[in-house]
Amino acid sequence: MLENHGAQLVCFSPVKDDNLPKNLDGIYFGGGYPELFAKQLSDNLNMRRQIKEVSSKGMPVYGECGGFMYLCSAICDPKGNPYPMTGCFPFTANMFSRLKSLGYREITLAYNTLIGKRGDTVRGHEFRYSDIAKPEDQKKIKTVYKVTAKAKKNKTDEGYLVNRTLGRYIHLHFGSNLDTAACFVESCRNYKLEK
């Protein structure tokens, strides 16, 4: 879908590669099992530093679920052992042995952001054994969308944004709103032109 909007996708491995691919205009992290490779991810200091650096420079970076956890400052296993991650977000992602969240979700964007305009809705799904610690500084981090879960009328503020790095546990399906992929590629194109 990103390719249909003019993106060239460059795969890389945060576990094995020493460096980010050259000349990137954006990064996409899908879900996965970073907790199973926490030590390798943590030991790859060079990759961690480079991702934090491009994030600080304002490169559009999108991460969901496992990808979001990698963008946090650390992943803590169920025993409480922390593994430092990239630190784009100042949260610790804790792993639990019990399911924390499961089900369909719909988000409504509260601002114009890298995946859409204010008021746009995107649908997705959540399935995770992890949750972020709720430190005081979480309140200082901007949230860019509201989430509606099935059977719950109340909407929660989620979708953390630091610079142009956006993340949360929900897996968004870019096919549920065809503008999402277009907007993400456009955000990357704008970054390319300004950098």
């Binding site: 003019g6 795969c11 491995s13 945060p14 576990v15 094995k16 954006g26 996965g32 990357c188 390319k192």
Partner: peptide, 22 residues
């Protein structure tokens, strides 16, 4: 339907994390 977009700014390179962890 297939309408690939071309931009004068050239292709946009997006890194996609893809390995055993992701």
């Amino acid at each position: 339907r297939r309408t690939p977009v071309r931009s004068p700014a050239g292709p946009v390179r997006i890194g996609v994390a893809m390995d055993n962890a992701f």
